[in-house]
């Protein structure tokens, strides 16, 4: 599904190298986690994959189902099935959440040559998905993310994910700023979307989110590279001993 090969990325303006050869494959139906200390390049990976401006790919490739992601505009990547749940979802005053969702859903359907959803069908679908995430009608009416609590913003991200039904979901520090209950709600939303056709890349600083969204593979990122990969037990090791041992071991290798 997602294949990243030897990806080198630098900041456009400063020319600073952030990713120094990331190689990663997420097969269909699997959940992979990327963990690592601050500044290791986790969020940059998510931005480069989704097409945010300001980054320059100097080497390597990234493909989704064999299609070159790096050649596409952000909206084309979305239509191809990529979704990024933001660490800091953006507030857009004056644009209703429903309008935003419907615009996004129909833009993607149009880009894929599918028929747009009617107002009635859309409303039915969004109500059903919102209910599962404990998002009430009032929240759907409000402007996008304006006045939402941290938990509400993250739930809203998962609602977008549920509505857009992407093939490949990247979650960037989705647990940041969430209390335990909010995190459980978000994790349940994500788990409900797990399927053999859909993959996840969960970027997180802490292990706790992985108690709720259990990954198939855990990757440790440091200084722009994946330095170690393993099963869910790797996350527990980080939780117990911190990154120090793993990084030291990687340096020795």
């Amino acid at each position: 599904m997602l294949e990243i090969k030897n990806l080198h990325v630098q900041l456009e303006e400063e020319g600073k190298q952030i990713l120094k050869g990331v190689t990663l494959t997420v097969p269909a139906g699997e959940v992979h986690a990327i963990m690592g200390p601050n500044g290791s390049g986790k969020s940059t990976t998510s931005y480069v994959l989704s097409g945010r401006e300001g980054y320059e790919v100097t080497e390597g490739s990234a493909t989704l189902d064999g299609r070159d992601l790096l050649e596409m505009e952000p909206e084309e990547r979305a239509a191809a099935g990529l979704f990024l749940a933001f660490q800091y979802p953006v507030e857009i005053p004056g644009v209703g959440n429903m309008t935003f969702l419907r615009t996004a859903v129909n833009a993607q359907r149009k880009a894929r040559g599918e028929e747009e959803l009617s107002a009635g069908d859309f409303l039915k679908l969004v109500r059903e998905k919102a209910k599962a995430l404990d998002i009430d009608a009032e929240m759907l009416k409000r402007p996008v993310n304006v006045g939402f609590s941290g938990g509400e913003k993250k739930r809203n991200e998962i609602l977008q994910m549920a509505m857009l039904e992407p093939r490949m979901c990247i979650l960037d520090e989705t647990d940041s700023g969430l209390d335990v209950d909010a995190m459980r709600l978000v994790a349940e939303g994500v788990n409900a979307l797990r399927s053999p056709e859909r993959s996840f890349l969960v970027i997180t600083h802490y292990q706790r989110l992985l108690d709720h969204i259990v990954p198939d593979v855990v990757h440790i990122m440091h200084d722009g590279r994946i330095v170690k990969s393993g099963g869910p037990e790797l996350a527990l090791e980080v939780e117990r001993n911190g990154y120090g041992d793993i990084l030291a071991e990687a340096a020795d290798a």
């Binding site: 097409g51 945010r52 990547r77 979305a78 933001f86 857009i92």
Partner: peptide, 25 residues
């Protein structure tokens, strides 16, 4: 904000229209 909208599949031109409306709200 422009990237946020585009990352959801909203084409650039349409995203700008939404952000202009947002500004005028």
């Amino acid at each position: 904000a422009l990237f946020y909208l585009r990352s959801r599949g909203v084409p650039r031109e349409r995203a700008i229209v939404l952000l202009v409306l947002s500004f005028l709200a």
